[in-house]
C-alpha cells in the first residue's frame, strides 16, 4: 500500500499492511538501539543493547520476508532500504533520537511492555500458522527485553538524584508518543475482523496498570495519560528525525544496489 490515508482493500493487502507496520516499528527501534554499539555506559550494557537491537532487527526481517512473499516483492531489503520516510508505517515513538541512556531505557520499557501484551494476545488470536509461529518465537525475546528495561527503570528511578531526574524527564518527554500504540484506525479494525490483528484497547487498562506499578515502584511520577498525544506517523506523517535515520541506514544499499555479502 502507498502512503497517507490509503486503506487496504483485499485480505492480502490488509495482512501485508499489518506485517509492515509491525516490522517498521521493530526495524526503526532496532536501528536506534544499534546506535549505542560502542557507546554503552558499561561494556556489559553495550552488549545488552546490541543484543536487543539484533533481536528487533531480526524480528523485522522475518516479518518483511513474509510480507515480500505475499506482496510479490523481491525480498525484505526492498522494504528496509528502498522506501522513503512517508512510506514507513512505524509510530513516532521509535524514531525519536536515542537521547541519553535513561531515554533509551524509558522508551524500550514503554515499547517492550506494549509488545508483550500485544504478542501475548496475537499468539492466541492469529490463525495464520506461519505468522503465529513467528510471533511465538519473537515473544520469548520480547519477555527478556521487557525484563531488562524494567529492571533498569527501577534502578534509575530509585537510584541517584541524577538518574532519577533523567529517567523522569525521559518519561515526561516520551509520554505524548505513547498514544499511537493504542490507535485503532480503519486498517487495524479491518485486520482485527480478519484475525490478522487484535483490539489492543481490550488490554490497554492492563498495560496502564503495569506501567503505573513499575513507575511507582521506581518512585517516579506517572505522567498524565490524557495529555495531547502525537498522531499520524503510521500514515506517513513522521517527525523530522526519521528522514535522517533512513539516510544513514539506507545510503550504502542505495548507492550500491547490487552489492552482495562476500
Amino acid at each position: 500500500m502507498s502512503t497517507f490515508d490509503t486503506i487496504p482493500q483485499t485480505k492480502k493487502e490488509i495482512f501485508t499492511e499489518i506485517l509492515l507496520r509491525l516490522a517498521d516499528d521493530r526495524l526503526i527501534l532496532g536501528h536506534r538501539l544499534s546506535e549505542w554499539a560502542g557507546h554503552g555506559p558499561e561494556l556489559e550494557e553495550d552488549l545488552a543493547l546490541a543484543n536487543i537491537a539484533l533481536d528487533m532487527i531480526g524480528h523485522s526481517s522475518a516479518l518483511y520476508e513474509y510480507a515480500a512473499k505475499l506482496d510479490n516483492k523481491p525480498d525484505e531489503d526492498h522494504y528496509a532500504y528502498f522506501r522513503d520516510d512517508i512510506d514507513f508505517k512505524n509510530i513516532a515513538l521509535v524514531e525519536l533520537p536515542k537521547g541519553d541512556f535513561a531515554f533509551t531505557i524509558a522508551r524500550q520499557f514503554l515499547f517492550s511492555s506494549f509488545s508483550y501484551f500485544l504478542y501475548k494476545d496475537l499468539t492466541d488470536t492469529i490463525d495464520d500458522e506461519e505468522f503465529n509461529g513467528m510471533l511465538q518465537k519473537h515473544f520469548k525475546e520480547i519477555k527478556y527485553h521487557l525484563r531488562h528495561s524494567r529492571e533498569w527503570v527501577l534502578r534509575l528511578g530509585d537510584g541517584t538524584e541524577e538518574s532519577r531526574r533523567r529517567i523522569q524527564h525521559a518519561f515526561d518527554e516520551l509520554w505524548m508518543y505513547t498514544g499511537e500504540m493504542f490507535e485503532m484506525d480503519k486498517t487495524f479494525e479491518l485486520a482485527t475482523e480478519n484475525r490478522f490483528y487484535t483490539d489492543v484497547l481490550k488490554w490497554q487498562i492492563d498495560w496502564k496498570e503495569f506501567i503505573n506499578t513499575t513507575l511507582e515502584e521506581a518512585t517516579l511520577i506517572v505522567p498524565d495519560y490524557d495529555q495531547y498525544m502525537f498522531t499520524g506517523a503510521r500514515a506517513g506523517r513522521h517527525t523530522e528525525y526519521l528522514g535522517f535515520l533512513l539516510s544513514q541506514m539506507q545510503f550504502l544499499r542505495r548507492s550500491y544496489p547490487d552489492a552482495e555479502w562476500k
Binding site: E42, L43, E44, E45, L47, A48, N51, Y144, R147, H148, E151, R155
Partner: peptide
C-alpha cells in the same frame, strides 16, 4: 566474569555476555 551493580543485573549481564 561480569561487572554489575547487583545480583539481578549480574544475571542479566551474564546472559548477555556469555549465553548468546
Amino acid at each position: 566474569s561480569v561487572h554489575a551493580p547487583d545480583s539481578e543485573m549480574a544475571l542479566q549481564n551474564a546472559r548477555d555476555t556469555y549465553a548468546r
